[in-house]
Simulated scan of single mutants.
Amino acid sequence: MALTGTQNYIPWISVTMASIMEHNSSPFAFHILVDKTDEADIEKLQKFSIQWNVPITLYYMNDANLSQYCRFERYRINGKYVAALMYRFFIPELLKDKAERALYLDGDVVCNGDITSFMDIDLQQNIVAVSEDLKGQEYAARMNVERYFNSGVILVDIQQWLSNHISKRILDDLRIAAQKHPEMSCPDQDILNVCLDGKDFFVPHTYNLPYRLVQPSVFKPKIVNEDAMQASLIHFIGAIKPWTTYNQSVPIVKVWAHAKENSPWRDVPIHEPGSQKAFHQAARDARRRHAYKEMVLWYFRFIKSKFDGTRKVGY
């Protein structure tokens, strides 16, 4: 099982891992591809390994080299291109002598059920097992592929991936796309879909259920999610994640919070609202909970933020 991210994502990656261990008894091994760690990260990962009796292997990625493939505006932060989106493409090569299959998971996925049947599924000669994106039909037409999947959960047949040279094809396509279309909003997922078109086995949302935490205004249609409590793997899509203080009453976020509490990262604070958008979301969430005094306070902070220099975006 493989997860990837920058150092600041390690706590959330580890909550994903804890949720898997809480709901599954099968022996697993975790492989984490990351840019760097410190002594505190290592100590907590060792505690996790002992707590759950599960091996954890770290792989340190060379961002200076990988950034040449991800020169997209979406991934440019503080003048540098964040290469973490590239890490997952190297999982098959890294694990080829250790496993026949690898389950890749984004760090904003929570497990709420058994996943062993998914990991043992018959891929029918396909390279990957995936689940359709929430806007699958729209994106499939845009990218001219048969079906379009969300890349937050991917079960990979390692030898099939390697024999079809998928990583090289992705890197080549990313380099070309970055030169021609640096404004692409989801380049890694788009190119994965193109390179794996016709070689992807689709499974129900049970194993990658897209869940949106955003609270729309009263003037927009209510967002309706599928029943996350009936799924095994739930993927928090969009900018708002379960590690925000104003979503903790949502049932599936409580599942995430329980896993966090049952990990060495229990004391890592979740994010307080600190932007105009976050204040607005906190107010809407309070309204959803009928906590009207709290709602008024958040709306006041939201209005005040429009005049005091508080940043507009971010959660």
Rank of each mutant, 00 (worst) to 15 (best):
M1W: 06
G5V: 04
G5S: 07
T16N: 14
T16G: 15
T16H: 11
I20F: 07
M21K: 10
E22M: 15
E22D: 15
N24G: 08
A29N: 11
D38T: 03
E39N: 15
A40R: 08
A40K: 09
I42W: 10
Q46E: 15
F48K: 01
Q51C: 09
W52V: 06
L58M: 10
Y59V: 03
N62G: 07
N65A: 12
N65S: 12
S67G: 08
S67Q: 15
C70R: 12
R74H: 10
Y81M: 05
V82T: 14
A83I: 03
L85M: 11
L85N: 13
R88T: 08
F89L: 09
L94F: 14
L95V: 05
A102N: 04
Y104D: 01
D106P: 04
V109N: 13
C111Y: 08
S117G: 10
L123F: 01
L123M: 09
I127H: 00
V128P: 06
A129G: 06
L134D: 08
A141K: 12
M143A: 14
R147L: 06
I154T: 07
I158V: 04
R169I: 01
A177V: 06
A177M: 12
P182K: 00
M184S: 06
Q189N: 06
D190Y: 14
L192C: 09
L196N: 00
G198L: 00
F201Y: 15
F202I: 09
F202L: 07
N208A: 13
Y211S: 05
V218M: 10
M229E: 14
Q230P: 15
I237D: 02
P242C: 05
T244I: 08
Q248H: 07
S249N: 12
V253Y: 03
K254S: 05
A257R: 12
H258P: 09
H258E: 10
A259T: 02
W265Y: 13
D267I: 12
S275N: 04
Q276P: 07
A278C: 08
A278F: 04
D285P: 05
A286L: 03
R289I: 08
A291S: 15
K293S: 11
M295T: 02
M295F: 03
L297N: 11
F302H: 00
I303P: 00
S305E: 02
S305R: 00
K306F: 02
F307Q: 01
K312A: 11
Y315Q: 09
